[in-house]
Design a protein around this nucleic acid. Sequence first.
DNA 1: CGATTTTGACCAGCGC
DNA 2: GCGCTGGTCAAAATCG
Length: 325
Amino acid sequence: MSDNPGDHFYYNDAGYRYNNGSYDPQRLTSFADFLQGPNQDYNSLARAFGLQPLGSDAPELFSPFEDINPVKQEIAAEGANNEGFNNRNGEGGGNGHDNNYNQVNTAGNSSISSSSGEGGAEEESSKCKKEAAQGEDGGESSSKKQNKLKKQGEKKQREPRVAFMTKSEVDHLEDGYRWRKYGQKAVKNSPYPRSYYRCTTQKCAVKKRVERSFQDPTIVITTYEGQHNHPIPVTLRGNAAGIFGHHHHHPMMLAQPQPSIVPQTFPPPEFMISHIMNINQVGSTATTSTPDYPQGRSSAQQQQFHDDYGLLQDMLPSVFFKPEE
DNA sequence: CGATTTTGACCAGCGC
DNA sequence: GCGCTGGTCAAAATCG
């Protein structure tokens, strides 16, 4: 949707300051579980991040599990009941939170006319996927493109999407995977374009979209769709493999030397993404062995994890999910 | 010279 | 049907 997610960003109020910065394995577990399994339910991730559900206020973003398959729905329901997600504290969200870092907020950029104009809800939901195409080449030539094989009508439902908002100057964040850009389109109501990427690994259909929030240009919104069915290519430095592991490098060192909006405070967001991807990776491929976080780690490692997570928190202005496109 | 990006054409839903 | 829109294709351009 065009609806630039920016139109609904109250995420800043969501209190992502995860449990006051204290370590909460429970939540970490949740977070990791979410990333690992195929059962990504939106609320669980939110929970993991200590986010408010945004339920009533932003149904279009957070809501519904309608598009998710039955199994996931159950999970979702469970989670919902379980922990009440509805306890949004305050309505307009409001409660400020103000992080240490200068919450940019682009006050100036008030072009947020958003609501005013069309913004209005605008749903959109497009589940469109091209594909079938079937060209009638009836007439003439010109059939250049289409004419692909067409599977019988499978609807090709789309995979759940998970999006991250990250404060960063660079649009395309390093996340350990290789991507090939296959398109770019202007985003309605936004001066910033949206880029489309596909995982370059064969057989892997994961896609990713990157766009900059027009409400707060310091934030980039990265949306992933699908799950990788292969390991992270081991070519990049700062590669997730090193993050937890064996090495004693401080995460900061693994980070890419790219400019950050708030250099003195923030490590490049690439690190964060890698971190997330690492967790994701560990679970998906392998084995049911022990997860690579908290348990079974030395206290130093746990501490490290804790620190990393803290950074991660700072890097992530928030997280949100869009069940329906 | 292969891999990737650029960029306009195309395509499929959707609302009207 | 028409036009808009998000998403994708693919030929040409560029990169490494």
